[in-house]
Amino acid sequence: MPADKILLVDDEEEFILILSERMKSRGMSVETAESGPAAIKKAEKQDFDAVILDMMMPGMDGIETLKRLREVNPNLQVIMLTGHATLPNAVEAVKLGAADFLEKPANIATLIEKIKEAKIKKMVLEEKQAEERIRNILKSKGW
């Protein structure tokens, strides 16, 4: 089974450096970005099983980054990481399609569990879309 491919987005350089090292030691393939625009660039070039996204970032914040990431790839599973786990933020993020929410500092076991769940959700979504495409082809060809 290929390694889970994760994009970790946070403006705290030291935080993402250590967390990515811990995730890599658990067999994950981790890319990092220190800003919203940098994350979008990476998501445009590569597919990720999950994105771990900090809510509070300078410039483009987590909510705006989430919107843009979902435009790039609507199937992308984004787990919001926040120090301000307030209900309005959570509701807004979920409305915009965030897969989950996790308060910072996060327990790595919980984070990994959520990544696994996100990966399964993405696989189910992609399988459904593939089935839909096949059905459409079959219909259009009259087979």
Partner: peptide, 24 residues
């Protein structure tokens, strides 16, 4: 206070990850 507590939280998160790295 919200801003400063957020800064503290970031530091705590880093220390938490460093401690996790030691555990690893």
């Amino acid at each position: 206070t919200a801003s400063l507590s957020h800064e503290i939280n970031n530091v705590v998160a880093i220390i938490g990850e460093l401690s996790g790295l030691l555990d690893d």
